[in-house]
Structures are given as C-alpha cells and as structure tokens.
Amino acid sequence: MFAPTLPDTSMPRIFNMFIIRLLWQIPTGLFLVVVLFLSINEYAAARPSRRIKDIPYVATNASGTDAERHLLDVYTPRKATSAGKMPVVMFIHGGSWNSGSKNLYTFIGRRLAKQGVVAVIINYRLSPAVLVPAMADDCAEAVRWTTQHIAEYGGDPDRIFVMGHSAGAGLAALLATDSRLFAKLGITKNPVKGAILDDPAGLDMFDYLTRMEYPNDEQYLISYGKDPAVWRSVSPMYFVSDATPHMLLYTGGRTYPSITSSSQRFIERLKEHNVKYDYKVLPGKKHVAMVTQLFWQHNLIYQELLTFVGADK
C-alpha cells in the first residue's frame, strides 16, 4: 500500500544545507591549495639550504644579555659554490622597533642560501625594554660576530652586507653610515661593504619626531625617548660621508609618505657625498608587500642583490 503523498517540507532545508556546506568548502579548499602550494614551494627552497638556529652573538654571561633577543640564525647552501668563500648578507627585521622576530623571515634566509649567499638573520632587543641606540648596538654586535665566525659557515668576512625592511632597514643604513658603532667595539674600520634598504623607516627620526605630522606619532617616543639629541644620534641621514659604501634602496609606490620623502632626501645626501647608489620605486607596492614579495626567489630585489654582493649562483 502506498503512503499518502504529503508536501515535502524537508527538501528546501536539505538544499539550503547543501549550499551552505558547498560555500564553506570552496574557501576551505582554496586555503588548502594555497597552503599546499606554499608548503611545496618552501620545501623546494629549504632542501638546498641549511639553517643553523639560535646562535648567541654576545657572551651569554655578559651584563644585559637577553637570552632570546641576542640570537641569530645562519643559512648556508648545502652545495658549495665554485668561488670559495661566499658573500654574506645580514638581514634585520622590521616591526616598528617594538616587535618582530628572525623566525618570521626564514624564507629570506632560504632564498638567499639557495642562490649562493650565506645569510645571517638576527634578533635584537626591542622597546620598551631598550631604546633604539641599544638596538643599533645589538646589530653592531651581530656584525662583529659575523666577521669573527662566518668563515666557519663558508662566508667571506670581507664581504659582509647588511639588509633590512622598515625599521630594520633604518638600522641597516645606520650600520653602513655610522662607524662609531664599531669603534665602541674596538673595530677601527667599518666592516659593512654595502647595504640593501627595503622601504626603510627611521632614516631621519630627528626630523620626523620634531615635526610629529601624523596621527599616533607619539608612540615612537617609547622607542626613541624624548631627547632630540638621541633622535639625531640614530638617524642615518646625518652620518652619510664620502666613506659610505654602495647602497641599493627600494621603496613601494604606495608606501607611507614619510618613507617616500625621507628616502628621497637620503638619496640627495648620498649624491652630495658621491656615494654610489641604486634607487628604485616599485609601482603599486605597499609597505608590507615590500617584504612579503621576498618570498619569491626571482623577485627583482634578489636579482639585483645577487649582482650587488657578487654571488656565484
């Protein structure tokens, strides 16, 4: 016997549930594809390189040593190049002088090592624990460690270049221009052979903090303090000289106006002292994209960097 036919009120509900599940599956599927792609890409990049993690670059028993922040990682190619000792690039992360970690930039270490460069990626102390002058001292200590030990990892201590993004690029510029940082360590000649500045912040914090043109600029006083003499003492703009080494400088076409204007003034200062430089504005790039683009091995910055440091690819 057939049951009487009744209106099937369950069908629209079942259909709606199906659509909802389908819509959920689409972004999940795309996410998984992206994750899989990036994982494969990262594995391919990691295979030719070796990472030596968490090396202290100051004596662990020294006064003021920070067990987490006074560390660096070294990335080396697994296969030796034909040219002997390899050029060295020390990368300094950004993060508004109060955040960031070397562990976020393994992709830069991997990409450089894959292309015949020994990469050193560092941590340094951050505010509010310390002010920017102490951060600059940390970076100089990391360079000193590199000069003393990088040959053990296949790097050439006579070809050390510094690189950074944002606040890290400002610190890299300071290392390249202010030899007093090394004189305090007993190093009579600045060991930095060149600098790669990626959307640099902090090139002239004396001017920036004097003007206070933008909302929330007071936040940077936590990192720089309130003494204008200190602001000037860690602004690379005032230390450019005839001895300043060759620089590569990149800014994004859609980065912060303060970075654009200070970079242009920095270039003028380099010109005044006949310092060799190359400067490019990358169209359409915002500040964060200026560093995330370094995930891609064939990025323009890598292409020019390899020639700049003399890498044997």
Rank of each mutant, 00 (worst) to 15 (best):
R125H: 06
V34I: 15
H93K: 10
H149G: 12
T65M: 11
Q264M: 05
G109A: 02
P56I: 01
R13L: 09
Y124A: 03
K286R: 12
R211Q: 15
E42C: 00
K189Y: 09
A183T: 14
S235H: 12
S99T: 11
L72H: 07
D242M: 08
E68L: 06
K85Y: 09
I121D: 03
G310H: 09
R211A: 15
Y75T: 02
C139Y: 00
R159E: 01
L209E: 09
K193S: 08
L71A: 06
K271T: 03
N103G: 07
G84C: 11
I222C: 00
P215D: 06
P12K: 06
Y256C: 00
Q303C: 02
R111G: 08
T210P: 07
S82W: 01
W145A: 09
V117T: 10
F295E: 02
T292M: 10
S101E: 10
D8L: 10
M247Q: 13
F182Q: 05
H273G: 10
K85E: 11
F308C: 08
T28V: 15
Y238N: 10
S166I: 07
T260G: 00
G164T: 10
A140M: 08
D227H: 12
T244M: 06
N103Y: 14
W296Y: 12
T5V: 14
Q148L: 15
L249I: 15
N190K: 11
V275N: 14
I187D: 02
P27I: 07
H273N: 14
A172L: 04
S223T: 04
T244Q: 08
R110T: 07
S258M: 10
Q303Y: 08
I150C: 07
Y279R: 03
V58R: 15
V162P: 14
G100R: 05
E42D: 11
K114G: 15
M237E: 12
T106E: 14
T106I: 07
L175Q: 09
T210R: 13
D204M: 06
F18Y: 09
R47N: 02
H298P: 01
L175M: 15
F31Y: 12
K226Y: 15
L300P: 04
L181M: 01
H149A: 00
S261V: 13
F266N: 09
T60P: 08
L23P: 10
E272H: 15
G164I: 11
I196D: 09
K114F: 05
P215Q: 00
R180L: 00
W296P: 06
T76K: 13
P7A: 02
S101F: 03
R21T: 11
H246V: 00
Y238E: 05
S82A: 14
G116H: 05
V230G: 02
L30H: 01
A289C: 00
T28H: 03
S223W: 05
S241H: 05
A44G: 01
E42R: 15
P56L: 05
